[in-house]
């Protein structure tokens, strides 16, 4: 099986690398310098950063185990952006500072909500055969 970072996967992977750089540096500095300002938002930023890191690293590996790790982390990412997006819309007072997932990633051209959908599509399209068999 070809690696998942070939062809269109390369573009998806490149987008994930950008989000890893952005989210990790932002979360790190927010937590170090101004955690007390918006603890909820910055904790969510850190969780989002961790998920982007695991998703990106697992995309770079081939094999069924890495495929499952990508599948789970990108699903969490999609759930996260939908939940935080709705939450920040309903209760903006909880979010004195924005997270990458606030308002469905509106501050980032909505890429945070589009990227996991494309990611999941790509994973399902490149599903390793061995993950398809039911394993009791």
């Amino acid at each position: 099986m070809q690696a998942r970072t070939q062809g269109p996967g390369r573009v998806i992977f490149a987008m994930y690398v950008v989000f890893v750089i952005g989210s990790v540096s932002r979360a790190t500095f927010q937590i170090i310098t101004e955690f007390s300002v918006a603890p909820l938002a910055y904790t969510l930023s850190a969780i989002a950063a961790a998920i982007y890191v695991v998703a990106t690293v697992s995309l770079a590996f081939s094999g069924p185990r890495a495929w499952w790790v990508s599948m789970v982390t990108i699903s969490i990412e999609l759930a996260g952006v939908l939940i935080v997006g709705t939450w920040s819309d309903l209760a903006p007072q909880s979010f004195p500072d924005a997270t990458v997932w606030s308002n469905y990633g509106q501050g980032y051209l909505f890429i945070p909500v589009i990227l996991p959908i494309i990611g999941l599509w790509w994973l399902l399209k490149n599903r390793p055969e061995s993950t398809k068999r039911s394993r009791r």
Binding site: Q6, G7, P8, R10, V11, A14, M15, V17, V18
Partner: peptide, 20 residues
């Protein structure tokens, strides 16, 4: 990074990586 990544992908997707 884009150039390194695109060098390994001499297809249309390499061009899209450079676009990103």
């Amino acid at each position: 990074l884009g150039l390194i990544w695109a060098k390994d992908e001499p297809t249309r997707w390499g061009s899209f990586v450079l676009a990103v």
